[in-house]
Design a protein around this nucleic acid. Structure first.
Lengths: 171, 171
DNA sequence: GAGCGCATGTAAGCTGTTACATGATTCT
DNA sequence: AGAATCATGTAACAGCTTACATGCGCTC
């Protein structure tokens, strides 16, 4: 029942992009993995130390500015592949947006319309951000599937917002 | 930047369903709010104590079996409405499924197909669970919008899985 | 030499999960 | 009487966020 998805994400990035520093990995979280998982450097640095102790990654000698380059080990690769192949992903939801949707009847018509309109705007912007990076992602195999998934879910959310706005304005 | 979504969820249920015990609220999380948020009794009981101290709910005298009935206060109602109307929902994603999708190219064709197939099966089951409770939910205003949102997102995920399976088998 | 980006870390606090623990009431 | 359900809690641990803190190297 171990979750350890941060570990998996870090191992995945090391496998996909090759040896990297904690700083590099933090940047990759911001730019390439942001639709999937997020983590700041304060979480990444200690985790890399633990992963080194567990033999999942190895750390090379320090470069300029104290830079440490981590490389995935065979044990790390095995753990990563095993998790990918065997792990049943959790479908537990914890979404502030869905909570707002659930409680919408507590608001009057105008306020409810405003809330759904804001949700729509948020996802329209998110979708725009994703679609404009499609060309870059299509170049490498990684991230293509995840990006299509993100786009599909954002489109579904926007369609829900439109439908809900129509129902609210009609009532 | 306070999150406090557990508080909001509890206040929302108290507003929607009326005075309830912690036990009732835990059951409601399981049955009515499960597509939206989840929380166990070990999180709910201490939070209700804190919320009582903060004046957001009030607790009546103990009933049978030590049952305590909580009621939302005016302060609680004000906080709830304010959050609903003003809170910009976080769109940060942390999805094990999306992580698996991202890292799919690390697996060989057969393993990747198996992973996507399992994801599809999971969401087909989730969708079935949601659609069969649509009639019950349609009766009361609460949860209708959230349920439609859950259904739309599940359908989008299943469509993504079909598309991805087709692309994988073709390659 | 001033400023920016690179690069690493620690500490406090909040949130959430799992395991443990207890007792009352109702149903069969 | 035994089992299931009702009903409440505590404690330990894991995961994550925010704020704090430091210093190097490059460019203008």
């Amino acid at each position: 029942m171990t979750t350890m998805s941060l570990r998996i994400a870090l191992l995945g990035l090391l496998a996909a992009k090759g040896p990297s520093s904690g700083y590099d990995l933090a940047k990759l979280f911001e730019h390439s993995l942001n639709h999937v998982w997020n983590a700041g450097h304060t979480q990444i640095y200690p985790e890399l130390v633990k992963m080194t102790a567990d033999g999942l990654v190895s750390v090379g000698s320090e470069g300029p500015r104290g830079r440490k380059t981590y490389t995935i080990t065979d044990d790390g690769t095995a753990l990563l592949r095993g998790w990918l192949a065997d792990h049943e992903p959790s479908i537990a939801v914890r979404s502030e947006m869905a909570l707002q949707a659930f409680l919408l009847p507590l608001l009057d018509k105008a306020a409810a319309i405003a809330v759904v309109g804001r949700i729509k705007a948020l996802y329209v912007a998110k979708l725009a951000g994703m679609t404009c990076q499609v060309p870059a992602v299509e170049a490498s195999p990684f991230g293509r599937h995840a990006l299509r998934l993100g786009v599909a879910q954002a489109e579904a959310t926007i369609a829900w917002a439109d439908e809900t706005l129509a129902a609210l304005t009609a009532s």
